[in-house]
Design a protein around this nucleic acid. Sequence first.
DNA 1: TACATTTGTATCGTACACGATTTAATCGTA
DNA 2: TACGATTAAATCGTGTACGATACAAATGTA
Lengths: 149, 149
Amino acid sequence: MEKDFSTLYLENQLCFPLYAASRLTTKLYTPFLEDLGITYPQYLVLLVLWEKNSQTVTEIGTRLALESNTLTPLLKRLEQKELLTRSRSSKDERAVLVTLTASGQALKEQAVCIPQKIMESFANTSMSKEELQAFQKTLTKLVELLGEE
Amino acid sequence: MEKDFSTLYLENQLCFPLYAASRLTTKLYTPFLEDLGITYPQYLVLLVLWEKNSQTVTEIGTRLALESNTLTPLLKRLEQKELLTRSRSSKDERAVLVTLTASGQALKEQAVCIPQKIMESFANTSMSKEELQAFQKTLTKLVELLGEE
DNA sequence: TACATTTGTATCGTACACGATTTAATCGTA
DNA sequence: TACGATTAAATCGTGTACGATACAAATGTA
C-alpha cells in the first residue's frame, strides 16, 4: 500500500498558485511602471504615500508588511530619483519621516490610469469583473488573517 | 472638482493583496522548511521533482514559471546540499537533466506532512476549508490565464 | 552541406525579501 | 534621576527574481 502523496501536488498547495500569481501579476504591471521609471515595490510605497504624505518608515512598513531592512534601501533609491525625502522626525529622533517631493506627488497623475489598464488586460478573458472583485475580497481577508501573526 | 484617485487605494488593486498574501504565506511555510534545511523556492523545485524525477531545467521552469537565470543558481545550491545532481543530457547536449539523489527522494517522506500542517494553521480562523479550496481554484485559473502571456 | 535561426543554459547586474544583529533614542519604573 | 527594556532604522549576509546578454548545440532551409 503506497503512501498518499497527493497533497504534495504543486497545485494542491495554497502556496504555489499564490506565489506564481503574485509574480505574474507583477509582470503585468511592469511595462506601465517602467514608463514612470519605478519598480513594482517602489510603486507600492508610492501608493501608500499618495494616500497620506509624510509617514515614518514603520508606518509604511506596517501598511505593506515590510520591515526597515527591505524599505531603507528601497526608499534611498526613491530619494535618488528625487521622488521623496527622508529626514529624522524632530518629535522622535529615532523615526525617519518619508515625504513626497513635488515630482513624487505629480507622479500620481500619471499613475492613476494604471489600475484601469490592468483591469482591461482581463477584458477578453474568462475572468469577469465580478469574479475578480470577489477574489480580491477573499485575498484581502487572507492577508488580514496572515498579517495578524 | 477633484479627480477620483480611489482606484489607487492599496487594497483596491489586485496586485497588493496578491503580493502580500504570497509573502505572508511563504512565511507560514518557512519554519517547516527550515527543519528540512531548504528555502521556499527550493521546496517548490523539489515538489516538481517528487512528482516526476529527472527533468530538464526548462521543464522545471515551465512548471514554476521560472527561467534559467533564477533556476540555475538555485539548483546549484540544491546540488551542494546533495539533494540532486545536474548533468548534460546525452540526447541533447544543450539540456541539463536534474535528478534527485537518494536523500533528495527521501526528503519527500518528511515533507508530506507540511500541507496538512499549513491547513491546520487556518483551523481556528474564519477561513473554512471550502472557502480556501474555492479560493485556490480561482487562483489556479488566474495563474493559467496570466501564464499564457 | 553551409549558414542563419532557434533553443537550452549560464552569466551579469540590479533590486528586492528577510533573519540576525547593531546603534541610537525613548520609555518605564524603581 | 539612573538604568534596563523597548523601539526605530540601518547594516549585513544569503537567496531569490528577472531583464539583458552570451554561447554552444541543434534545427531549418536554400
